[in-house]
Amino acid sequence: MSLYQAVIDALNAGGVIAYPTEAVYGLGCDPDNEAAVLALLAIKQRPVEKGLILVAANYSQLLPYVDDNAIPLEKRYQIFSSWPGHVSWVLPASQAAPKWITGQFDSIAVRVSAHPVVQQLCLTYGKPLVSTSANLSGQPAITDKDELEHSLGAMLAAIVPGALGGATQPSQIRHALTGDIVRS
């Protein structure tokens, strides 16, 4: 069995995984599995109302969660030219987007990653993953694999091997309709 198959099996079983991203280790799970998302939020000690980011290999993977028709034509170039990359965009959520992902919002934060491990995970899984930094809410994001294993390893179904990308900060989050920077 390939390494990715074991991770896919863990995701299908509702497990929470950790994986390298551009800047930090991320925690992820199946965005459509409410129990898995609630388990991830419990690990992070983060309230569901805050919402979560979805990360994908390409925009088409995000279409079930995004109200594509509500994105103005004049905003599309800026969004799509930043992907794949290190920018998350807050877009209008589709009616099908789960409330355990959108939280208290009618929007959803999404990004198309350029990180090869994230790309391969999402392509192999066939859909986006929840993507949030691997840390307790309010604590610094984890950038060291040993620290990840020591602090969160026992709560995770799998830790995907791979190096972090070269970025020094988690992804910037921008609001697509206003252009405002939500997180720099």
Rank of each mutant, 00 (worst) to 15 (best):
L41R: 06
V66H: 09
P98G: 09
F105I: 07
T168G: 13
V182K: 04
G51L: 05
L129V: 05
R76P: 08
Q78W: 12
P128S: 10
Y59S: 13
Y77P: 08
Q61H: 09
C29A: 12
S107P: 04
L40I: 02
D106P: 00
G85C: 09
A176T: 07
G28D: 13
S171L: 08
E147N: 10
Q61Y: 00
A154N: 14
I173Q: 12
T178A: 13
R46M: 01
P84G: 04
Q172M: 14
A109S: 15
T178S: 14
P161C: 00
L54N: 07
N135Q: 05
Q5D: 14
P161G: 05
L63E: 12
E74K: 06
S151G: 01
P72V: 03
W89G: 05
Q5N: 11
I17Y: 02
E49V: 14
A13R: 03
C122H: 02
R111L: 11
G153V: 10
D30M: 06
W83N: 05
A35C: 07
S137F: 12
A109M: 12
A93E: 12
V160M: 13
P31C: 15
S82E: 15
A157K: 00
I71T: 09
W89Q: 04
D67I: 03
G15Y: 00
T102G: 06
I173K: 05
I79E: 10
I159F: 03
A13E: 03
G51V: 10
V55H: 04
G51T: 15
S60A: 15
V37A: 11
T168H: 13
Q120I: 01
Q78L: 07
G26D: 10
P64I: 11
V182L: 09
P170C: 01
L129H: 00
Y19F: 15
Q61N: 04
A70V: 00
I159R: 12
A39H: 05
R111G: 13
Y77R: 10
E149G: 01
L156R: 07
T102F: 05
G166A: 08
R174A: 01
N33D: 11
S113V: 07
C122M: 05
R183N: 05
P20L: 05
Y4K: 00
G28M: 10
S2E: 07
A158W: 02
L164N: 06
Y59W: 08
L148A: 11
Q78N: 09
F105W: 14
Q172I: 15
I43P: 09
G166T: 09
L121F: 03
A57D: 06
V130T: 09
A6F: 03
V110N: 08
Q104K: 14
Y19L: 12
S88F: 06
T168I: 05
Y4V: 02
L62P: 02
C29K: 06
T143V: 13
L136N: 09
I108A: 05
I53F: 02
A70I: 01
R46I: 02
A109F: 15
T168M: 11
V7F: 01
S131R: 01
H150A: 15
I181R: 01
V66W: 02
V48A: 07
C122E: 08
Q104M: 10
A97R: 03
